[in-house]
Amino acid sequence: LELTLRVGDKTWHFKDVDEEFVRHLEELLKRGAHEREIEEIIREWLR
């Protein structure tokens, strides 16, 4: 999967994204996660 995600003024483009990561992001967005929380999840995933 490829994913382009825009949060606030930042845009990330990922290739070979894990479906579990996408589901986790979807859940965060559904519950109205704040920009900082989403950025933290992305940084963790990139490690």
Rank of each mutant, 00 (worst) to 15 (best):
L1Q: 12
L1K: 13
L1D: 12
E2G: 12
E2Y: 08
E2D: 15
E2S: 14
E2P: 03
E2F: 09
E2T: 10
L3F: 10
L3C: 03
L3W: 04
L3H: 06
L3G: 01
L3I: 15
T4V: 14
T4K: 13
T4Q: 09
T4Y: 09
L5R: 00
L5H: 01
L5G: 00
R6S: 13
R6W: 03
R6T: 15
V7M: 05
V7N: 02
G8F: 03
G8D: 02
G8H: 02
D9V: 03
D9T: 07
D9E: 08
D9S: 07
D9C: 09
D9W: 01
D9F: 03
K10F: 10
K10I: 14
K10R: 09
T11E: 08
T11C: 08
T11S: 04
T11V: 15
T11W: 07
T11I: 13
T11R: 02
W12R: 00
W12C: 01
W12S: 00
W12N: 00
W12D: 00
W12K: 00
H13R: 07
H13G: 02
H13Y: 15
H13A: 04
F14S: 00
F14P: 00
F14Q: 00
F14E: 00
F14R: 00
F14C: 02
K15D: 05
K15F: 07
K15I: 08
K15G: 03
K15Q: 08
D16Y: 15
D16G: 13
V17F: 03
V17P: 06
V17I: 09
V17Q: 10
D18N: 09
D18I: 01
D18S: 14
D18M: 03
D18F: 03
D18H: 10
D18Y: 04
D18W: 02
D18E: 09
E19R: 15
E19L: 14
E19D: 06
E19Q: 14
E19M: 13
E19P: 11
E19W: 15
E20C: 04
E20R: 10
E20M: 12
E20P: 15
E20H: 12
E20S: 14
F21D: 04
F21N: 02
F21Q: 04
F21G: 02
F21I: 04
V22F: 06
V22R: 03
V22Y: 07
V22W: 03
V22M: 05
R23D: 04
R23Y: 08
R23A: 08
H24K: 13
H24T: 13
H24N: 11
L25T: 02
L25W: 02
L25Q: 00
E26R: 15
E26M: 15
E26T: 13
E26L: 15
E26D: 07
E27F: 13
E27Y: 15
E27M: 15
L28R: 08
L28N: 04
L28G: 03
L28F: 05
L29N: 04
L29M: 15
L29P: 01
L29Q: 07
L29W: 06
K30I: 09
R31S: 12
R31A: 12
R31V: 08
R31T: 09
R31C: 05
G32T: 04
G32Y: 06
G32N: 07
G32F: 06
G32W: 04
G32C: 06
A33L: 09
A33Q: 07
H34M: 09
H34Q: 14
H34D: 14
H34T: 14
H34F: 05
H34G: 13
H34I: 07
E35F: 11
E35K: 06
E35T: 12
E35Q: 13
E35D: 10
E35L: 11
E35G: 06
E35A: 09
E35N: 08
R36G: 13
R36F: 10
R36K: 13
R36P: 06
E37F: 08
E37Y: 11
E37M: 08
I38K: 01
I38A: 02
I38V: 12
I38N: 01
I38Q: 02
E39S: 07
E39N: 12
E39I: 06
E39V: 08
E39Y: 09
E39F: 07
E40L: 10
E40T: 10
E40P: 03
I41A: 12
I41L: 10
I41F: 15
I41N: 06
I41P: 00
I41Q: 08
I42M: 03
I42R: 00
I42A: 01
I42L: 05
I42D: 00
I42H: 06
R43V: 11
R43W: 14
R43G: 07
R43H: 12
E44W: 09
E44N: 11
E44F: 08
E44I: 10
W45T: 03
W45F: 12
W45P: 00
W45I: 03
W45G: 02
L46S: 05
L46E: 08
L46P: 02
L46W: 07
L46K: 05
R47W: 10
R47F: 12
R47A: 11
R47C: 05
R47Y: 09
R47M: 10
R47I: 10
